[in-house]
């Protein structure tokens, strides 16, 4: 049997088919969660925002039009929800500098790997919010430039530029870790 598209599943759910929602949810739960976690940096807040995003999606089910790709629509809701969160609180505090300083500590290879990853995450959390978000959409959700542009309300070139800046900064961090 041919797999139903996201758009078809969402329309079916809007008409009361909860099984359709379960399929849809299983497809998108992990990437959406990773996107949110990447934005806010801590699990408790990510959990809150993740649940809140899905609640908004559920509430908006009857307004969904199949002409709009579901993924773009879903991420747009999540993006707005995360942005509302950032507006309510002050910008996420920078992580302590020790995270980076500890990158070269310890002889164990696994520990080094974990430290390297921590350092990258820290560097990513320090990116400007719009660069971090664009990178997360690309890395975690696998969205293309145009979809990211649609979600964030900017043009494709701006998304490209944000991604380039983000990648360049993180590459520098990686390079520092490799040579450090």
């Amino acid at each position: 049997m041919q797999e139903r598209s996201d758009e078809t599943l969402m329309k079916a759910y809007a008409q009361g088919d909860t099984e359709a929602f379960e399929h849809l949810y299983s497809r998108h739960r992990a990437p959406l969660y990773r996107y949110i976690l990447r934005q806010v940096g801590d699990v408790a807040t990510a959990n809150d925002l993740y649940q809140g995003s899905w609640e908004k999606i559920i509430r908006a089910r009857t307004k969904y039009r199949a002409a709009v790709p579901f993924r773009a629509w879903m991420y747009r809701i999540a993006h707005n929800h995360v942005m509302d969160h950032f507006r309510r609180i002050k910008p996420v505090a920078d992580l302590p500098a020790e995270s980076l300083a500890s990158a070269d500590a310890g002889p164990d290879e696994q520990f080094l790997q974990e430290t390297r990853e921590d350092a990258l995450r820290t560097a990513m959390s320090r990116l400007p919010a719009e660069q971090r978000e664009a990178l997360s959409f690309k890395l975690d959700s696998g969205l293309d430039l145009q979809t990211i542009a649609d979600i964030t309300g900017v043009n494709r070139e701006t998304v490209k530029s944000r991604l380039r800046y983000a990648v360049t900064k993180l590459k520098r961090t990686l390079g520092d870790l490799n040579t450090g």
Partner: peptide, 11 residues
Amino acid sequence: AVLNTARRAVG
């Protein structure tokens, strides 16, 4: 929690 919310929303 999400799936329960989805079910409740449509009765």
